[in-house]
Write a protein that binds this DNA or RNA. Structure first.
Lengths: 195, 195, 195, 195
DNA sequence: TATGAATGAGAGTTCATTCAT
DNA sequence: AATGAATGAACTCTCATTCAT
């Protein structure tokens, strides 16, 4: 029964998302996950070849920044809007997964590669947008797009990281606000011919 | 023999630094550490109550940004220099320890608290410096110092994080250069009355 | 459809022969076998009550020395020819199945019994042939046929065993040649009135 | 305490010998072995890196045919005696370990290599002895020593194999007697200029 | 007939920690 | 102070077999 099938897989993934979040990659045992999912151990390994494989799937689901919001804007001066959309897209993912990622990264080459890909593609999309801005005249001409793309991603990921580490709610409450300010500043810097 | 004693502790810490870096917090077993240190297991537990305790000590040593370089500047307009020093201080620490931190953070409340403290104090020092800059007139008056301090730390830590994940050397080679540009930009923004 | 039915059974057996050879009795899982056979797990258990049952069937097919080549010789002095045929018959079976047999023998009483039967019947046929040789005058009278039959079988099986274990091709290349020499010697010994 | 140390290792090996014999390589679990040895699982893995490693050690102990009984005979015509000693040496080892060996051989390359070595060295010693017999004049000159050495080992191992498989005690009771006859025959054949 | 998802006991192995010496 | 053998719970993963569909 395909519905049931998808149901079991799905419930394992959901349990995985929750268990990994609560306990970390190493802290969450397959037993934890299957008992939370209400599935037998054999069932788990019927659907996933390993705990690592489940984690990769969980990661895709939780961290992947969807491409939406970007392509439907082929216009002229909408570079700002598109950059803004890209900038705030990570806010939609589950912020507290960043440390868990790094919990897994030493244990799994696959995770390492996937994360590098993730950040790399994000950086590339930033860079592409900046270049397009230059063509259109919305971004200042003499600008090292690659280096600025790196910096943008770094600021965002760093903000996530800090908001997660800080145990007081003030820190995490500050996140959207901080990103807001960050974007305004960056945008000012980027669009001026001369700062 | 107190000299020997300190020698044993020290060699355990050194081995810990290296083993944790290579293998991560979970990946490095106490066996790995003691055999690298040339110390017996009993010796290890004589000096450290647990693996976690060693990790905290290793963390202090590797990540703690020393207060030095800051106090010797009580002058007037040297806020820029002091901010620059603070900004680049993390570069001297071992960059690849950031993911290892997150490997440990889920497994140890102590580590979690210490990391929060670490980032918190760094942010506070940034904020203090910015306020001092406002007093002296080196930083523009109307500036949310707390929020900008957050942003500065985020950019730095984010840059480290990306440089660690990216497998290509370009990414990590880019780090000092990127931080350089980041600082210049930020400083321009911070000091101008009007951007 | 009976044709299809036999086809499924057959393909399971063929896959079993191959999987057991490659991986051994314990090493070959039912999954390995059914996926090699292109059959579902349910299909497997429809045709065989257990993995052990399949192995017994595989064993029959691979190891059983067929009676053919023997009965069509009711003549007088053809004892030598018939003994020679019996002697070399095992060469036609798949030599590398001997260790796999022993892989299974501890796990299955049925296999154990069947193997004992197999070797027993071979020994009996040897013994019968020797006795017939005595009647006919082709084999020396005073000869402990039972004991010599045992010895013949031992030499053959031992040769197989060694040829399988030895990793260098010389060893296995030597097998037919060695059996040749062995037969010549034995035959000389057996047929002489006095050695 | 070195005495205690050797005691634990020893008791694990003894339990291994017994458990492997009763249950086979796959059938004997580490749990079986440690509970028979009265040792904890951790203790087992403190002394042996794996079940496979224990098996290799057990195998050495049970199957290795010690070199003794051979070197103290540098004389002239004692080739017969030395060959006889070599021939019957395997009788002192534990006969029923042969199938267990093959149970393990598919699962472990190390075991496979060690067994090949074992049989190979035995064959070489046979061959050397035959050559020495030729020099001394005790063995007929025109004799393919390599091929006969192979045949001797094959006969012995095959006899063991059969004696183990056959469930009736007659079969195993027959073993020393059969080896006796086998040796007499072989020796006659080997020493005669013309058979 | 045929499917393949589900089972769950049990496999080998790891590891932080303890403690008798 | 120092040793390293010993512990045992917990780990990830396997697999022959069952059974609802």
């Amino acid at each position: 029964m395909p519905g049931e099938d998808r149901g079991v897989r799905e419930s394992i993934i959901v349990a995985g998302v929750s268990a990994f979040r609560r306990l970390g990659y190493h802290g969450a045992s397959v037993n934890d996950i299957v008992s939370e999912a209400g599935v037998s151990k054999g069932g788990f390994y019927h659907h996933f070849p390993s705990k690592e494989a489940l984690f990769v799937e969980v990661m895709e689901r939780v961290l992947f920044i969807r491409e939406e919001g970007e392509p439907p804007a082929p216009g002229d001066a909408d570079v700002e809007e598109r950059l803004r959309a890209l900038f705030f897209a990570p806010l939609s993912r589950e912020a507290d997964y960043l440390p868990i990622l790094f919990d897994a990264i030493k244990a799994s080459a696959v995770v390492r590669e996937r994360v590098a890909e993730l950040f790399g593609s994000y950086r590339e999309r930033c860079e592409g947008l900046l270049r397009r801005g230059q063509e259109v005249g919305a971004v200042r001409e003499r600008l090292d797009c690659a280096s600025w793309a790196f910096q943008i991603v770094a600021s965002i990921e760093g903000a996530f990281l800090l908001s997660v580490v800080s145990p007081d709610p003030t820190g995490s409450e500050r996140l959207p606000e901080a990103l807001d300010k960050l974007f305004e500043t960056l945008w000012r810097v980027l669009r001026r011919i001369d700062i």
